[in-house]
Nucleic acid binder design. Structure first.
Lengths: 222, 222
DNA sequence: AATATGACTGGATTCGTTTTCTGGTCATAT
DNA sequence: ATATGACCAGAAAACGAATCCAGTCATATT
């Protein structure tokens, strides 16, 4: 009985301990990798450094991730999810549908800008992301899902506006998609042959606001 | 008198001959360069080859262009002008303003696609263009002017629609600008983290048409 | 048995050197 | 006044040696 109790307790502790340690280790690896990537860039960061910073052996890293690339993709996906959350929060706040559309889109654009400007290696990381994404269909899938989630946040606001008679939208999904597509030039990499790339966050947001208001004219109920 | 005549004729012939030869040489250089660039890419093409193909000495190339980069930029500018011309032609045709907006934008997008897909080295050329443009302010200026011209073609159509009471546009220039900006994702390089890049010309045009019709809802008089 | 580790490996990358190539110049020719 | 091609310097390629580092695996630990 004591044995059984000890056994259960021990097993429970072992399981919990392992899982907790495991989760902790995973998180430590992600944290260490994020700092390294931001400070030194993707290529200059080695798995050995990440493992050392995280306080685990090198092999342990490979128990949690298939490789360096997956660590980076995982980090970016987390950032993307975080942005989606912010958008949801903005969409859930009390405001007119027009304002919500404005704010949801601005949130997305500003957050992406913020994330890419946070580090001196932002450009390298963006390039690397695009590169890696091309050869990781499973992550492509997950990224697409996340974009889908963002479309849906916007679609929700459109629906709300629709019910309130402010917007005239038939296919919310498609409209949200087109709407966000029209903002391609506000996302990095800012490749603008002709137009100059935005110089500052303020300039970016001002441009985005103009675009939002232009696009919303087509949404309004007439 | 005969002397004067001969003199004038000779001078005229010389001038005309020189200018004609000169213009011919310039054109021959551009033609040769275009073929080489399309067939072998920018980097693999040498000035010696261009000169040989054009049937002129190497030094002559430098009488007409400041360097290899300027030859390429000149060629691209010519293509851009040609596209503007096509847009003007479409805008001048008889059609409803809505149709003209559709067609003008489709012309632009299709032509750019066409130009970039014409060669296996389209991507290299686009990259090279962006690169070179960064260090050639005078060409930047000329490219911007050409884009301005394209905005104006579209602005003209908007104005026409406005007069006919079909569109409600206050600032034609700015509207044209925003309108074209919304199509960034339809121009190369097609960098789409999430959305797939267009696979074919047909897919591209279909997407563009959807976008045009979406955007035009905001333009219509209510 | 389940998990963690770090020494080890080989393919990739970097580095330093040599060689080739090529954009641009200029003295000469027409 | 215009056209040319030999020439030059600096860039790019080619190469091999040295180094690095992602990923593996035999072993250790619990």
């Amino acid at each position: 009985m004591a044995g059984a109790i000890r056994g259960r307790a021990a097993r429970g502790a072992a399981e919990a301990g392992q899982r907790q340690n495991s989760a902790e280790a995973r998180q430590a690896i992600l944290d260490a990798a994020r700092l390294r990537f931001l400070h030194y860039g993707y290529k200059k960061t080695t798995i050995d450094e990440i493992a050392a910073d995280a306080g685990v052996g090198k092999g342990t890293v490979y128990l949690h991730f298939e490789g360096k690339d997956e660590i980076m993709l995982t980090l970016v996906l987390l950032v993307k999810r975080n942005i989606t959350e912010q958008m949801r929060a903005v969409a859930a706040a009390v405001a007119s549908p027009e304002d919500k559309v404005r704010r949801v889109i601005l949130t997305l654009i500003s957050s992406v800008y913020e994330a890419c400007t946070a580090s001196a290696h932002g450009n390298e990381l963006v390039d690397e992301l695009h590169l890696q994404l091309r050869s990781h269909p499973e992550f492509q899938e997950r990224f697409t899902q996340e974009m889908q989630a963002q479309y849906e946040v916007l679609a929700g606001v459109l629906h709300e506006g629709s019910r309130q008679g402010v917007f005239a939208v038939t296919d919310r999904e498609k409209t949200a998609h087109l709407l966000l597509m029209a903002f391609s030039s506000f996302f990095p990499p800012y490749i603008c042959p002709g137009n100059p790339a935005p110089r500052s966050r303020a300039e970016l947001e001002a441009g985005a606001l103009e675009m939002v208001d232009f696009l919303m004219r087509g949404l309004k109920q007439r």
